[in-house]
Design a protein around this nucleic acid. Structure first.
Length: 211
DNA sequence: TCCGAGATTCACT
DNA sequence: GTGAATCTCGGAG
């Protein structure tokens, strides 16, 4: 198996010895496929020698050229140029004056298509996430159930725009197999154009899904 | 439980 | 100048 890497994380959920970093080819597939397949995968963030790990439970697809809700709809700009780069990189944007959101660039043809990570289930490094979110009473389920929340919890900001997800700072690994039946698709959240597209995916019944 | 307002920066028009 | 792929908080119901 390609991209097998030594275990970096002392986490019992990972099989001893090695975990599988998702290969580039995972991201180069059609965006909607990647959005669905990302559910149940683990996102790993290396931060000051510690590891933050979350299971992806909610995503949204943004189909660039074909999608008025996408930042890439009107073509390439300085802000969104990462979306038009190679799949498997991170597109981080700043919004509402105070929040960051993280997207995974997808598709083999560099058409500005990406998947927004909307929510994860915290698995490892929960204490650090609480600190990053500057929460006092640490409401466990409020840690990462929203795109801006998970960025803050994972310490992801504008500096990470363009980060390769095959790097060792931030990457995604194989995780849990999610049965097709448990994957729900609905309309996306917080947008005005293209709201009729059912391009939001989440794991049915998971308490860490936003909203 | 729900709704409205404020926060606050950046890219695009 | 405007509005944005959001979140938190306070106050009303």
């Amino acid at each position: 198996m390609e991209n097998r890497i030594p275990i970096l994380i002392n986490c019992p959920r990972f099989k001893q010895g090695a975990i599988d970093k998702l290969p580039r080819s995972f991201y180069l597939r059609p965006t909607l496929t990647v959005a669905r397949d990302l559910l149940g995968k683990y996102i790993v963030r290396r931060l000051k020698g510690k590891s933050l790990i979350g299971k992806i439970v909610e995503t949204e697809a943004y189909l660039g050229d074909n999608d008025p809700a996408s930042h890439a709809f009107r073509g390439k700009t300085k802000r969104n140029e990462v979306m038009f780069g190679e799949g498997g990189h991170l597109y981080v944007y700043f919004t509402y004056g105070m929040h960051f959101c993280a997207n995974v660039v997808t598709d083999a043809e560099r058409r500005g298509r990406a998947v927004l990570l909307r929510a994860v289930e915290p698995l490892e490094g929960r204490d650090i996430m609480v600190k990053n979110r500057k929460l006092k009473d640490a409401p466990y389920k409020n840690l990462t159930n929203g795109p801006a929340k998970l960025c803050e919890a994972f310490g992801i900001n504008g500096r990470h725009n363009g980060t390769d997800l095959l790097s060792d700072e931030i990457f995604i690994t194989t995780g849990e197999e999610i049965p097709r039946k448990q994957i729900i698709s609905t309309s996306r959240i917080g947008i005005t154009n293209g709201a009729e597209k059912l391009w939001r995916f989440y794991i049915s019944g998971n308490p860490f899904v936003s909203k």
